[in-house]
């Protein structure tokens, strides 16, 4: 049994109560959501909060709803909820694809989207997904609510714009008609963190050309979307030659490190290979959805 350093524990009863507790206990207090990132770090004594503020009673943050042109996901929505949602499968198959390969059922039953985004692990899958979907993060603190684009929210590995006395409340994803999206990951074993992964979202115009596209990469040293790809794809009809070019650009844009999961050139190769695969799948799904989605 791995034993964390001593800490105190309190359960928050509401969002306001959680914010008040964060304020009261100060710099060395942390909220715990699913605990699947924080607790392992505490057991290894890499994280040593004095206070744990448990937000698992905040059912008001555990929701998922289609609200006009956006999908709103509460910060406490569990991975399993996302994985099993038919709305998500229909609107954002990239999320379903990603959730299928995030950890294992035990972790997915507890881990939350809020915890995932706030942890901002470079190998974390939902950050890439949110970048690709141009999600907006709703953050609440003593001074009220802020809305942040992913570019503003996500400041780099293990770093976000959420201050110590703030909570991530909700993630909003704009719903686009005639769109398709996909995610694919290479892992050494089921439940392992990504060696590399890629996600793409594509919107097709009425003429069948790509009107909007975003490609994101996981675990290869790129904290943004592959903007280079957008310039090349927008306005073009999807073809294999374009996907190949997009893959090439993705492999150039990333900046992976060599580790036990693989050497740099392999990870660059995966950025290329997986970019091609997810663009192919996203375009296929977009074409199929042209007649399906109406908002």
């Amino acid at each position: 049994m791995q034993i964390p350093a001593p800490f105190d524990y309190v359960r928050a009863s509401s969002v306001d109560n959680a914010l008040a507790l964060l304020d009261r206990h100060g710099a060395e207090s942390r909220v715990v959501a699913g605990g699947h990132s924080l607790l392992p770090m505490m057991k290894l004594r890499l994280a040593r909060p004095d206070w744990l503020i448990d937000i698992n009673d905040l059912y008001e943050l555990d929701y998922l709803l289609v609200d006009g042109p956006v999908l709103r996901i509460g910060a406490m929505a569990r991975h399993t909820t996302l994985l099993e949602s038919d709305d998500i499968k229909r609107l954002f198959p990239i999320i379903t694809d990603a959730e299928r390969v995030i950890a294992d059922p035990i972790v997915r039953n507890r881990g939350t989207i809020g915890g995932s985004l706030c942890q901002a692990d470079p190998a974390e899958d939902l950050s890439t997904v949110c970048h690709v979907l141009e999600a907006v993060a709703v953050v609440r603190g003593p001074a009220g609510e802020r809305m942040l684009s992913m570019a503003d929210f996500h400041r780099g590995p293990y770093e976000t714009a959420v201050a110590q006395n703030e909570l991530l409340i909700e993630v909003r994803m704009p719903i686009r008609a005639s769109s398709g999206s996909a995610y694919e990951k290479v892992e050494r074993r089921v439940g392992d963190w990504a060696v590399a992964a890629a996600g793409a979202s594509v919107t097709l115009g009425s003429d069948g050309t790509i009107s909007h596209v975003a490609v994101g990469l996981t675990a290869v040293g790129l904290d943004r979307t592959v903007t280079e790809v957008e310039a090349v794809l927008v306005g073009q009809a999807p073809t294999e030659a374009l996907f190949v070019e997009a893959g090439r650009l993705a492999s150039l844009a990333c900046d992976p490190l060599a580790d036990q999961r693989g050497p740099i050139d392999y990870k660059r190769h995966l950025a290329d290979e997986l970019t091609r695969r997810v663009l192919r799948a996203a375009c296929r799904r977009a074409a199929a959805s042209v007649s399906e989605i109406t908002i």
Binding site: L44, R188, R189, V190, G191, D192
Partner: peptide, 16 residues
């Protein structure tokens, strides 16, 4: 030692 936890020392599951 780079294999000091089950995050780094992988053992197979029913899925493999």
């Amino acid at each position: 030692c780079l294999g000091g936890s089950f995050m780094d020392y992988l053992i197979p599951t029913a899925m493999e």
